[in-house]
Computed example of a mutant assay.
Amino acid sequence: MRKSLLRMTLRQMTVFRAVCDNRSYSRAAEEMALTQPAVSLQIRQLEELIGQPLFEYVGKKLYMTDAAEALQHACLDIFGRLENLDMQLSELQGSLQGQLRLAVESSAKYFIPHLFAAFRQSYPEVSLQLAVVNHAQAIKRLSINRDDLLIMAMVPTGMELEFFPFLDNAIIAVARPDHPLLRRGPLQLQDLTAYPLLLREAGSGTRQATQEYCHQKRAHFPQTLEIGSLEGQREGVIAGLGLALLPRHAVRRELDGGALVELPVAELPLMRSWCVVHPRGKHLSPVAQTFFEFVRQQRSQIGELVGRFQALQPGPVD
């Protein structure tokens, strides 16, 4: 090993990680309550120890070099091991403590906080770092081992992963209550193609699942509108911009309040399952292992928990 690498400090790696996360020296400085020159100095010192540049500007955008990518992987491993040590020391003291780094696909963000709250009733000293991402971002985070666990609906087949399905995810067609299709009888998916379809951004798991399913059923939508969030899709349907294919649990409030209506399409709902996922062979921290086992053991109760959460949601405000 290069002796220079042994002179790297945890402080330098913390600053480096902040710059990687923010892709900005100034935002990293703000996050860490430092001056921008202090952040720049820490990065220069790291570059001297490594012997290669870590960042480069193209135009006004900051990019990581190959050396930075390698150092980022090492930092994730080092800090993960320190967190794991902290948790193990807590276990030796008779309690489970530490942070669960959890990434969830965006359409799961409505019920995951309630799931974690149920977990925390048994383990009150566990904290949560929650990242909300789309499907493409989730796969990227899996590839670099960024999180303890991920919650996703379409587990990629080309990666070595351990996963456990724990909750049904029904994707349905929704429209506003005065939509012409509601005056007809039972519908086929093909009947919807005469109207605009609101889609999530490229990289969304819901978009990928619904597009693949529609292609399989030979239902091609010539008119589409791309809206980069599930909330935007809901409001777009309410505004009359078109139809959408969305997870039922994510529009339960609007369905119960009458702002949206589920269309009676014979080929729907499209059923998927939410899964808790981690790379195969990954050494889970005590907190992550305990949460994984909690989800596995409480699978039947999780459906009831989500049902109670949806029932408690307030209706739309006039």
Rank of each mutant, 00 (worst) to 15 (best):
Gly303Ala: 09
Asp147His: 14
Asp191Thr: 01
Pro113Glu: 08
Leu115Trp: 04
Ser90Pro: 03
Ile50Leu: 12
Val251Gly: 06
Pro186Ile: 12
Leu246Ile: 15
Gly59Lys: 04
Leu6Met: 15
Leu6Gly: 11
Gln301Trp: 03
Lys217Thr: 01
Val251Phe: 01
Tyr63Ile: 07
Lys61Asn: 06
Gly242Phe: 11
Pro264Ile: 02
Arg17Ile: 14
Glu30Asp: 06
Tyr195Ile: 07
Val104Arg: 09
Arg101Pro: 00
Leu245Val: 03
Leu82Cys: 01
Arg101Ala: 05
Gly203Phe: 07
Ile227Trp: 03
Leu246Thr: 10
Cys20Lys: 04
Gln188Cys: 09
Lys217Ser: 08
Leu10Met: 13
Glu30Pro: 01
Thr9Met: 00
Leu130Gly: 03
Leu187Asp: 00
Phe163Gln: 13
Gly236Leu: 12
Gln97Ser: 11
Glu304Asp: 04
Cys75Tyr: 02
Phe111Ala: 11
Val39Thr: 14
Arg296Ala: 15
Leu225Ala: 15
Val237Leu: 13
Pro269Gly: 07
Pro279Arg: 12
Ile171Trp: 06
Ser4Ile: 05
Arg248Gly: 06
Thr157Phe: 14
Asp21Phe: 02
Leu260Asn: 06
Glu83Phe: 02
Leu102Ser: 10
Arg218Lys: 13
Gly94Phe: 06
Asp178Trp: 09
Leu198His: 02
Arg7Glu: 14
Ser24Ala: 02
Asn169Ala: 10
Ser285Ile: 01
Gln52Cys: 07
Arg120Asn: 14
Leu41Cys: 00
Gln289Asn: 15
Arg146His: 15
Ser106Arg: 13
Lys3His: 06
Arg272Val: 02
Arg101Met: 01
Ser4Trp: 00
Ser107Asn: 15
Asp86Pro: 00
Pro314Val: 11
Arg184Ile: 00
Gly205Leu: 02
Gln216Lys: 07
Glu83Cys: 05
Arg7Trp: 05
Ala173Phe: 10
Gln216Thr: 15
Pro124Asp: 03
Met13Ala: 10
Ala108Lys: 05
Glu262Phe: 06
Gly158Val: 01
Leu71Thr: 03
Cys275Ala: 05
Ala118Trp: 04
Cys275Val: 08
Gln137Glu: 09
Glu254Pro: 12
Pro156Asp: 13
Leu5Lys: 11
Arg183Gln: 15
Met1Gly: 10
Glu267Gln: 13
Pro314Cys: 12
